[in-house]
Design a protein around this nucleic acid. Structure first.
Lengths: 201, 201
DNA sequence: CCGGATGAGAACATTTTGAGAACAAAATAG
DNA sequence: CTATTTTGTTCTCAAAATGTTCTCATCCGG
């Protein structure tokens, strides 16, 4: 296997990065833009060189047909540097053994996001307008915060708890001005469980 | 299982989102509109491709007969479907003109993440253990939540406000048990401004 | 000068996508 | 129940997008 030229290396890096982020291969047009040229033909030449060098393979003719032959070592840029912890009275302290945060935990296609309206979970730090990330699941454990569908018509975000040996389900708000609700188990369907929360300013 | 084409992926995303919201599968007409085309026949072709690829199954001929199969190799992307808003007393409502959330907004070159320790911003919904995302900047506007370095030795996360025509700076906690602090402007250096917040459960 | 690496872009082949007609089956109205 | 409407299915025809193969041109080091 011969040495790659600079542009071939750049092309390989781009493809790996693209696949790390999108899990599908880029098309030639995207490769061209990604390495700063405008010709699909030139991009194709680099791709062909990478095939000849054994780094990738290709489903001939298929759109997005490139595949990596080696495991992708590229890290998706869902990663932010984590500088440390901040507390009143001290400079930012580094956190031992942890120097970045990976948001990929939030993804996966079993997850979806929902905008929260209202203050029913305010004491859990979930405010009106926040976005919560939900893993689609039909079951939950006591104490989980869940998206629950009641009587197939009302949806709500509450803390989940069984009672009476599972015959009833409590949905508990985190707001002292609101009261918990109790339903027969058959009236409540879990749509998902809270796994994350985010807010933009 | 072969790779999905762009439109096939879009179709699968739409179906998953639709079922998550409505609890029933969409009809072909709705799929077509959802992915921006007008032909039921074309929508059917995509659905058939998804069946062939093993992502969904179908009760042949039945209206709304599509069912999701176990998700295996779903793509991890920086984009999550945003299903709508959730409020007590109503099903999930779609948000007009907004159907996904892109976390790449958090990944600018000048951004970093910091773990929060303590409860000084609890009334702003920022709790102990949360991770906040900071854009590196040396200036801030009144009302911004900033990371401030005081006397080159203490770092803190507080709401920022000028006073006395800019000669003094107030750093205001969001916790009624704590008091705001006032410093000469020269003693305070802004390290960044809060642009996002996230929490994992 | 030569040769290799690079870039633009034309020309063509193939895949992917879109519209819509025609019919079959299911759902609905009466 | 029958009649009607709606929805699903199967086609054909075409357009658009993408992949492939070229030629031509520039730059640069030896």
């Amino acid at each position: 296997m011969q040495q790659l030229t600079d542009k071939q290396q750049l092309t390989l890096d781009f493809i790996q990065r693209y696949i790390a982020i999108h899990t599908v291969a880029p098309k030639l047009q995207e490769i061209a833009e990604g390495i700063g040229i405008s010709s699909r033909g030139v991009a194709h030449r680099y791709v062909q060189a990478l095939i000849d060098s054994g780094f990738i393979t290709m489903d001939n003719g298929k759109h997005r047909g490139i595949r990596l032959r080696k495991p992708n070592t590229y890290r998706a840029d869902s990663i932010l540097p984590l500088l440390g912890k901040i507390a009143a009275g001290k400079p930012i302290e580094a956190i031992p053994g942890e120097d970045q945060i990976d948001l990929r935990d939030f993804f996966g296609h079993n997850n979806f996001a929902v905008r929260v309206q209202g203050d029913s979970m305010i004491e859990a730090g979930i405010m009106d307008g926040d976005t919560v990330i939900i893993e689609f699941r039909e079951t939950a454990n006591d104490g989980d915060i869940v998206v629950a569908l009641i009587d197939e018509s009302e949806t709500t975000l509450k803390r989940f708890k069984r009672s009476h040996k599972g015959r009833y389900i409590k949905l508990i708000p985190a707001n002292k001005d609101m009261e918990e609700m109790v339903y027969e188990a058959s009236r409540v369907r879990i749509q998902g469980v809270l796994i994350g929360q985010l807010r933009k300013y």
